[in-house]
């Protein structure tokens, strides 16, 4: 199979890579670019652990081809904190202990960031529906919802 040359923007940086035509963007991020924050939970769009933002849309990177990123804007969990300064969502996830094993956390953070960007003041129900594409085997979701609510109020005040 001939490789596909891709030129894209990831977390604001211009990035170029070669990938196979059937390789997913998740595999490109993890295995070619060393961006291992996005996780593979299922590989079939069900768990959300691989969530990224592609041109302002939340998507599962396991269901995007690496080749499709050509000329587009990719945001991953690696771009969420500014240096040592955590994003309010990251900070609140820590404070509320909204994670245990942590495998789902990058996906939840990206999905929650997208949710708050589109709806800065969500109700609990909106948060639960908005994050329904992210599965967590450990926390039981309550702490995640509280962390997102708390982050939303902090971010509104900012």
């Amino acid at each position: 199979m001939a490789g596909v040359a891709v030129s894209t923007t990831i977390n604001g940086d211009n990035v170029e890579y070669l990938c196979q035509p059937d390789e997913t963007l998740l595999d490109v991020l993890r295995d070619r670019l060393g961006l291992t924050g996005a996780k593979e939970g299922c590989g079939t769009g069900d768990c959300g652990a691989c969530s990224i933002i592609l041109d302002d849309r939340l998507v599962c990177s396991c269901l995007v081809l690496g080749a499709e990123a050509e000329g587009r804007r990719v945001e991953t969990i690696e771009g969420m904190a500014h240096g040592d300064k955590l994003h309010p969502l990251q900070q609140k996830f820590l404070e509320h202990a909204a994670l245990q094993c942590g495998i789902c956390t990058p996906g939840f953070l990206i999905a929650a960031k997208d949710l708050l960007a589109k709806n800065p003041d969500p109700t609990e129900e909106e948060i639960r529906f908005g994050l329904a594409g992210n599965l967590c085997r450990c926390t039981g979701y309550d702490k995640i919802v509280r962390a997102v609510q708390d982050a939303a109020s902090v971010m509104k005040g900012a």
């Binding site: 592609l54 849309r57 599962c60 997208d114």
Partner: peptide, 9 residues
Amino acid sequence: IGSKQVQGR
């Protein structure tokens, strides 16, 4: 159809 993630695509 699907989740927010699936909706985006």
